[in-house]
């Protein structure tokens, strides 16, 4: 149990530093900005108490905000994403058992399930984030384009990480 807690705290810190030191500096034509830190919320264990799910999502969002001078923006997107997580897990039935101490993964739940699960949550997060950041109807198409490109890039990074760290066990 303690091991599980430390593992998640470690993942929290690693993803925050990855986001602020490397991913925020990625420059591809001005359109793409991946947000891999939400991978932390995707990978929280199945039996995480739901209040902890919300609070830790709020915490990771507000931490990222501190470093990008956008207080509240990432926090609002992360909390929105976290509040949909139980609903999405319930509606996407897996047919497999949820084991204590495990977390959603490509290996255990399969390609199709994990793809749907992460795509839906990433979409929720990015929609809130990009439209709240822009907050203008006149730039709707431009914002949508930037959002979709970033969703694609974030998804590629999530699957890259899944194959890299969790497939060979």
């Amino acid at each position: 149990m303690t091991e599980l807690v430390f593992k998640n705290i470690g993942r929290f810190l690693f993803l925050v530093f990855l986001q602020i030191l490397i991913l925020n500096n990625i420059q591809l034509g001005g359109y793409i900005n991946p947000y891999l830190y939400i991978y932390f919320i995707l990978l929280l264990p199945w039996e995480t108490p739901r209040w902890l799910l919300l609070l830790s999502s709020f915490l990771i969002g507000i931490t990222i905000d501190m470093f990008t001078n956008t207080p509240g923006l990432n926090a609002a997107s992360s909390v929105m994403m976290a509040s949909f997580r139980p609903l999405i897990i319930r509606s996407l039935s897996t047919g497999t058992e949820f084991l204590i101490g495990e977390n959603p993964s490509l290996k255990n739940q399969g390609m199709k399930w994990f793809f749907n699960y992460s795509l839906l949550l990433v979409l929720i997060h990015h929609t809130v984030l990009f439209f709240l950041e822009t907050f203008r109807i006149s730039e709707f198409l431009m914002t949508s384009l930037r959002m979709i490109l970033s969703v694609v890039f974030t998804m590629i990074l999530i699957f890259g990480a899944e194959y890299l760290f969790y497939s060979k066990k």
Binding site: G72, L73, A76
Partner: peptide, 8 residues
């Protein structure tokens, strides 16, 4: 969510 939006 409301707290985040208020901060924002």
């Amino acid at each position: 969510e409301v707290i985040s939006l208020v901060i924002f």
